[in-house]
Amino acid sequence: MNPKRSANKKYWKPKSKRWLAAAILSPAAAVAASALVPNVQAVNTLYYRTALVAFLAALLVLWTMRRFRNRLYHYSQFIAAAGLALTVLDLLTTKSNILKLPFFPGPTQIVEVLYTERAMLFVCTVYSLRLFFAGLACGVILGVATGVMTGWNRQWNYWLFPVLKIIGVIPPVAWIPLALVVFPTSFYAGIFLLALASWFSIAFMVAGGIASTPKAYFEVSRTLGASERFLLFHVAIPNAVPSIFTGIATSAGMCFMTLVITEMIGAKAGLGWYINWAKAWASYDKVYASILIMGAAFCIILGVINLFRNYFLRWQK
């Protein structure tokens, strides 16, 4: 294999000057379009342009820092494409009214809403994240507990496995009507639904991880004087830890979906609720703003899960 190619597996084209230039020129073009082309729709372009300029400034600052330089190169294709897309969208909406309001607000207007509604959006984001992590934590605890019992004990396996299999295929949102009646507040109902969404895939993965513990690990431990308890807690469960994280990673998307749907249907706060509320007022700029935040929030969620994963699985290659 070409050593030059294998040298950098992590970053794509970490030396390409051309893409870096594109990554700087295309946001600059967006700024220019916003500043030079006259508006057709009535909007305040200040926030949008300030955001773009701040973004460009951040790029330049990162460029001066050696440890971020490879990453900057890596993402330069994305940045270039995003800048281009913003320019085109801006021209199609704010600058020409080809895509009409209120359904298709331009980037200018969305950025404006992100700024003017920041307090509300912040509260909603915090509320959604709190519900997400509380629900996921319950799902992980339940999932690990039932998974361990299913994978370790034949008697438990006999009862739990079929139950998991049947309840596991039902979409968690199907329980919304029940959850909203049974639980005192929509927050607890949300926790229940999110726990349900993550419980089953985690339980299945953990049961598999426990059952697939190499026999040699148990035999070695027995010749070292280990009790059954030790075999479970120091051999089988640690062996299932990678499966726990696979279960969390695969159920995170399902959890997030359940979260948003639950909030749209039953909650009084959160990003899902905000979308519904904004839609009722035909404020599509707010809808898109909260969708953007959802995307960012889910990225952060995956990042946090990954941090935990890297810490607990530091023994892997």
Binding site: A216, Y217, E219, G225, S227, P238, N239, W315
Partner: peptide, 29 residues
């Protein structure tokens, strides 16, 4: 029993434990 230590052809070390933790398993158990 711990009276008869056994070593397999493939070392069968616990991959999630460091060298010292692996060696200490018998004491922990």
């Amino acid at each position: 029993s711990h009276e008869r230590g056994y070593v397999f052809q493939q070392a069968a070390l616990f991959p999630w434990k460091t060298v010292e933790e692996n060696i200490a398993v018998g004491l922990k158990a």
